[in-house]
């Protein structure tokens, strides 16, 4: 499985992976238990708390597989352990790939060529780490200040609380809108997932599957199954993308707005 003789997959790297991934899991469990206890204290039902755990876990499966696929993409140049670590803590699909590509470019290499020099490998690890750490530094310093400011603004009056609700709901919609707009007419940096027929059909499939499943759950009085609506729509839409690509002519499936 792992080539211990390769410095990229050495016992040191695997030990670091165990340490870092262990840290993330323990921290997550710590906050989950803390929030669960407080949730019970303020009267949130066990069923709601359990549903949150189950639906969030299911929700995360498809994106996690996508992250795993990126780990494999980066593995051809960096070995599998460094991308595994970087995408398990602080990391981000897009940032880690870009950081690795930028450093490799400076070194006169690229993502398809294996790194065989320890100093180059260390340089990539340094760039990935320094590049991504700022958000964590910032939230540690000003996270409390930002949250307290918002709480004070909402506590002032009922009117401002209503405004805060509107801001909160619309901010969520703003996030979704960015990705919906990208699926409608965005352009990816490498041209691999430009918006066009396939992205729009995948988007529409996800929406339609969600609405059908939700309506069925309501009509058949199966409210408990509603937590599966989101993961089912994600996988259903991904399957639809595969099927459309198989069934339709390439001239249709390869159509994008950006040629």
């Amino acid at each position: 499985m792992f080539d211990f003789a390769d410095f990229k997959e050495s016992p040191l790297m695997l030990g670091m992976a165990a340490l870092i991934i262990g840290f993330v899991v323990v921290e997550s469990l710590f906050f989950m238990i803390k929030a669960w206890r407080r949730g019970k204290e303020i009267g949130i039902s066990t069923e709601t708390l359990k549903n949150t755990v189950v639906s969030s876990a299911l929700f995360s499966v498809a994106p996690a597989i996508s992250i795993l696929a990126t780990v494999v993409v980066l593995a051809s140049a960096l070995g599998i352990v460094l991308p595994w670590i970087r995408l398990s803590v602080v990391g981000n699909l897009l940032y880690e790939t870009t950081a690795a590509e930028t450093m490799l470019d400076v070194l006169g290499s690229n993502i398809n060529t294996e790194v065989t020099n320890e100093a180059d490998f260390a340089a990539i690890a340094w760039v990935m780490t320094v590049g991504i750490c700022f958000g964590l530094v910032l939230v540690t310093i000003i996270g409390r200040f930002i949250i307290n400011k918002i709480s004070k603004a909402t506590a002032k009056s009922e009117k401002s609380s209503n405004i805060a609700d509107v801001i909160s709901a619309s901010a969520f919609i703003g996030i979704i809108s960015a990705f919906v707009a990208q699926a409608i007419n965005g352009k990816s940096s490498d041209g691999s997932s430009d918006a066009g027929f396939m992205s729009i059909m995948t988007l529409v499939s996800a929406i339609v599957i969600f609405l059908i499943f939700e309506t069925l759950c309501q009509k058949l009085k199966l409210k408990k199954l509603e937590i599966f609506a989101t993961p089912l729509s994600i996988f259903g839409a991904m399957a639809m993308a595969v099927l459309l690509n198989m069934w339709l002519p390439e001239t249709v499936t390869s159509f994008t707005w950006w040629g």
Partner: peptide, 22 residues
């Protein structure tokens, strides 16, 4: 064959999430 599923995971994810909100 599986490439489209991973190329458009973001469209699937936010379509599913957006449906309820929209």
């Amino acid at each position: 064959a599986l490439k489209p599923a991973f190329s458009y995971v973001s469209a699937a994810l936010f379509g599913a999430l957006g449906a309820g909100y929209l």
